[in-house]
């Protein structure tokens, strides 16, 4: 039954109305980018969830490896001074 002609997989990103960034919502199959956008409209925006759609071939996405998660994010681990809460402020100093 399989013809070996499965449509490629696309990842779908939707920007909602509130001026936010595009956000990943899921994936779908489509023969090309134009159809991927049309299908994404039908699958992911049936109730006005978006004002803009991005699609990207899943095969073209590169992701960090979960096995290297600790090493990859380690540099940020010991830099608490990057957060404002690191610096104690006297109560009488306002607007800071």
């Amino acid at each position: 039954m399989s013809t070996g002609t499965e449509w490629p997989l696309w990842e779908v990103f939707i920007r909602s109305q509130h001026g936010l960034a595009h956000k990943h919502v899921g994936s779908l199959h489509a023969p090309d980018a134009a159809m991927a956008i049309r299908n994404a409209r039908d699958v992911y925006t049936r109730r006005n969830e978006g004002v803009s759609i991005w699609v990207a071939r899943s095969a073209d996405l590169h992701a960090s490896s979960p096995d290297e998660r600790d090493a990859l994010f380690d540099p940020a681990g010991d830099k608490v001074y990057r957060h404002p809460t690191f610096f104690p402020m006297p109560d009488e100093v306002k607007h800071l």
């Binding site: 399989s2 499965e6 899921g26 779908l28 039908d42 699958v43």
Partner: peptide, 25 residues
Amino acid sequence: AKVQDEAGHGLYLYCAAETLGVSRD
């Protein structure tokens, strides 16, 4: 609209299963 939603729900779920390495076909 309801039946179209069911199609959509099927597609959300197929794509969740596909992340585990099985193709939709």
